[in-house]
Design a protein around this nucleic acid. Structure first.
Lengths: 333, 333
DNA sequence: ATGAAAGCGCTAACAT
DNA sequence: ATGTTAGCGCTTTCAT
């Protein structure tokens, strides 16, 4: 005999109460006499009853799960955010559905749709380029959404991140102060607002502040891989750069090793500052100086922000800006 | 006026058919006249109808989501597996609920329960130490489970991984062939079967095969962090080791840098082989020789295996063993 | 090929 | 404090 899955009904029958009462004790509703609560709890335990979250979700219209759109879990930058997200999600009794998008607009759209179909209570989006279609889908859906570690150039959506403009200004200023006249700006796609808007703006700002002309030859647009950085050295040399700001750690590690493999002394002959202070910065030699971002916290705060939205609390600010820092290691003088 | 969410009922009414028919076209049931199918599809499009996956799940008892228990997404080893899992999950129309456990038995139990409450169709477990309680919960539940990149010393559950014993044998044999008489065995907790059983067995096997006595002083049990490796050097020196097999890449990077920071020439004075061939192996200098494991594939195959279990297909083997390899870089002669 | 109707397991008024 | 009952939105026999 196949023993059927036991339901709230079974518990009610065994405990000689109504389903409503069982539901109340399961949900911690205070309107239950201690004696009955105890009785119900015993039956639940005896029958090893586990509430069916799907049925619950259908009846209550809340699934206690949130969707997380991530470019690639394999990338420490994103996985650090994801960890922060999951930890506070757990804290608030939520689970996360994690979906990789590769930053591909098509996949993002697809993923968003299945997430909405699954009735997630909220969504956290990571990615640096919100396509127009995605944006319109976002605004059309009434599901709360927050951007983690990403910026919305249109500033329409809730988001948490650091002040990238100011962080880069500070980093490049340091390089300038060491006497470098030609500082390279190395980043991922400039089409991504975080690079093309914020970081580049910070770079131009300090240059202007120091009376140095902006030279397009010093900006290197590439992809985020280690390899991309490694092969960049010849180009950097011919541009005459003596220092560089790099927008990604893996990329920076590539640049660093590329330079050293070419016999260049770091930081004596070439200085470098990277952006994310991930583990890699301490694993390479010399260890890399870096802007510090509270990655875990960005994820955690994003999720916390989302819980507030899901509770329909009033949000004072659309954007929450977390503090960044700067750690000097050995790739800068 | 609040416009209510549109349901299958709305579509049925607008298309002048029954809900059953709408359900059929949505689910690709062939028993629908092309004309009606077309009509329904048009209405679906016009109304922008999206099937509610929760309701579907309740009615069909399948949620098309699988749970993934992961020690820490932030660790590339695991995130690589996760990526493989997600990719094939997507391929088969599943989503994954990702939950971090920190390898903590308590959390694992908690997570497993909420996963089961959410009625996931299957579970993929990563972790190196299945507690007795967890094991009993696993076997009690009728939800399919597979272990990814983990071994089950009891061999009761489906799992996919490489042959750790053989891989270590080969790695250490190489070190021995280079004339090293004292090869250190450095790994995470020996309480984890993958270390204490498999890897250590491989280590002992080659030693025996080469007529070398096993010396407990040469086995270093520590945790998986970079830092743990970095501070290990003095101990390695006093044990008189001239080479080492290391069970984790971050740990290995630490050992490598610790040695070099102490002025030791690698590989001339000290050789090292690591285990996971993650990005880190190429980022440190010298680049590390490593056992190669198809991490992404292990994840992918695990998920594929799970889909088969969920379809109740007959599995010939409980365990699927993927091929490992070996890549010589510059930390070995 | 299509429809009618009975659930799936639970929550949330509403009533008592 | 507790019970009754009507859904939640869909799938799935069973008829026709």
């Amino acid at each position: 005999m196949e023993k059927h899955t036991i339901t709230i009904y079974d518990v009610a029958r065994e405990a000689a109460v109504s389903m409503a009462t069982v539901s109340r004790v399961v949900n911690g509703n205070p309107n239950v006499k201690p004696a009955t609560r105890k009785k119900v709890l015993e039956v639940i335990d005896r029958l090893d009853y586990r509430p069916n979250a799907v049925a619950r979700g259908l009846a209550s219209k809340k699934t206690t799960t949130v969707g997380v759109i991530i470019p690639d879990v394999t990338n420490v930058y994103f996985s650090s955010l994801a960890r922060g997200i999951d930890d506070v999600a757990t804290m608030y009794k939520y689970n996360i559905i994690l979906a990789n998008s590769d930053g591909n607009p098509q996949k993002e759209l697809l993923v968003l749709n299945t997430l909405l179909a699954k009735q997630v209570d909220g969504i956290i989006y990571m990615g640096n380029n919100i396509s127009p279609e995605l944006r319109s889908q976002f605004s059309r859906s009434k599901t709360p959404i927050v951007l983690a570690g990403s910026i919305d150039d249109k500033e329409e959506m809730g988001s948490v991140h650091i002040n990238y403009v100011a962080a880069v200004e500070e980093a490049v200023a340091d390089l300038l102060n060491h006497g470098n006249q030609r500082v390279a700006f190395i980043s991922g796609p400039l089409s991504e607002p975080i690079n093309g808007e914020d970081r580049l703006k910070g770079y131009k700002n300090v240059l202007a502040k120091n009376g140095i002309d902006f030279d397009p030859e010093l900006v290197f647009e590439t992809d985020y891989s280690y390899r991309a950085g490694e092969i960049l050295w010849p180009a950097i040399v011919s541009a005459g750069a003596t220092a560089a700001f790099v927008g990604d750690d893996e990329l920076a590690a590539g640049v660093l090793n590329g330079a050293q493999d070419a016999g260049v002394k770091v930081p004596e002959e070439f200085e470098l500052i990277t952006s994310n202070n991930s583990k890699i910065t301490e694993i390479v030699r010399p260890k890399m100086s870096s802007i510090t971002q509270p990655l875990y916290d960005i994820g955690a705060v994003s999720m916390r922000y989302l819980t507030k939205m899901m509770n329909k609390e009033e949000m004072t600010e659309k954007t929450v800006e977390l503090p960044y820092g700067f750690i000097k290691r050995s790739t800068t003088k």
